[in-house]
Each structure stands twice: as structure tokens, then as C-alpha cells.
Amino acid sequence: MRRKLRVAAYAVCVRDGQVLLARSPGPGGVPEWVLPGGGMEHGEDPYDTVRRELAEETGYRIEVTGLLGVDSARHVLARRGLRAPVEQHGVRLVYEGRVTGGELRHEVGGSTDFAAWQDLDAVSALNRVRLVDVALRLWRERPAAGRMP
């Protein structure tokens, strides 16, 4: 089985009791909410990745105010046709960010199609990826090791 490592950086931006999220078409076309962020380009620093990705997906510029932690997950991705499955290992750096400029807008032609501020109390009712919960827990609890048990 082929293996692939993907390193990505995401931001938790909270203000006035709301968190900034982006919406992805999701598997099977069922939309799901994700943290703004994404994969690093070769040679790119993760600090620059999170600022670039957040701007692409939301229109905002941010100041990175801290590193909340790291999340790691492995998945086997089935491929269609003759291609063999791929074991993907994702390493996700989760930063805290503060919006410093720009205007909220939706990404066009990217991995997300909508961006919005969501009430923190309402996140549990949203169709969302696991990383949203992990990141919000890192933001709330701020574990010294930067990792949730």
C-alpha cells in the first residue's frame, strides 16, 4: 500500500463568542464545516501556510498569536478504478489567530465554498470534521504538551 504524509496548518479564530469556520463540499457531496487552513507547500513555513490558507478561504488576514498544538491522524483512502488504496498520515498544526484585516468572503475554485462565523455554542450541532472539535478543545484547555490525550 502506498503511503502519503500530509502536513497542514489551521487556525482557530474566536471573537465575540464565535469561531471562524469554512465549509467544504465533503465526501459524497454532504457539506461539512472545517477549520480554515490547509496543506503546506514544499519549502513553506507552517506559520506562512496558515496565514495564506486562511486568507484564501475567508478573505481575512490574521496575526498568529500562538501555537495551540498538534494533531495527527491516519486514514486509508480508497481509490477508484485501478489505483491502489493510499494510507494517508496527516499532521495538523493548530494555531490561534486574530483577524487583523480583510473582509469576509467565500473561496472560489478551492477546497471550500463558504466561510462564516459560527456561535461557539452551536458548533456541536454542525456537520463538521473531527479536527474542529480537537482544535476547539486545544483552544479551551491549552494543554502544556500541545496534544489532547
Rank of each mutant, 00 (worst) to 15 (best):
T112M: 02
Q18G: 05
T112F: 03
G69D: 10
G43S: 01
H89S: 12
R52S: 06
R51Y: 01
R80E: 14
E44R: 03
L35E: 01
W117G: 06
V94W: 01
R142T: 00
S24H: 11
E103T: 15
G97F: 05
E103C: 05
A115K: 04
Q118F: 01
G39H: 13
E87G: 02
R142E: 08
S124A: 09
D48I: 04
G26W: 06
L5A: 11
V132Y: 04
T65D: 08
L131F: 02
S111D: 15
L67I: 06
H42I: 09
R142G: 01
E96R: 15
T58C: 06
R128K: 15
A78W: 01
Y60W: 13
E107I: 01
C13A: 15
V64R: 13
D113E: 12
A115P: 07
D113Y: 10
E32L: 04
P31S: 07
V134D: 04
R23V: 08
D133C: 07
P27A: 14
P27L: 12
V123P: 02
Q118N: 09
R105T: 12
R140N: 10
Q118V: 15
R83K: 10
A144N: 06
G97S: 14
E32N: 12
R137H: 06
L67P: 00
V123L: 11
D119N: 06
L21D: 02
A125Y: 12
L68Q: 07
S72K: 13
R51S: 02
A144C: 00
D113N: 14
G39W: 05
Y10G: 01
L5H: 10
L5E: 14
V30F: 08
G109Y: 06
V7Q: 09
V108S: 15
L20G: 00
E57D: 07
G110K: 13
A145N: 10
R6F: 00
R147V: 08
Q88C: 02
T49N: 01
R23N: 02
V7P: 02
G28M: 03
G29D: 03
L120W: 09
P143E: 12
G90H: 14
L54C: 10
E41Y: 11
M148Q: 09
G59W: 05
R140A: 07
L126I: 00
D121P: 02
G90Y: 11
L67V: 05
N127Q: 12
G146W: 00
A84T: 12
P149Y: 03
Q118I: 14
V132L: 11
V108M: 13
L104K: 14
I62N: 03
R92A: 04
V70N: 09
V34D: 00
A122S: 13
G28V: 09
R83L: 14
V64M: 14
S124E: 14
P46T: 10
L67F: 13
E96D: 05
A135C: 11
G102E: 07
V14E: 04
Y10E: 01
L21T: 05
V123D: 13
R147C: 09
A115D: 08
V12E: 00
R74A: 13
V50T: 02
M148V: 11
E56L: 07
L138T: 05
G59T: 01
D45M: 08
A125I: 04
E141W: 00
V19K: 05
G39V: 09
S72F: 07
V94D: 09
N127R: 15
L67K: 12
S111L: 13
G28Q: 04
M1K: 15
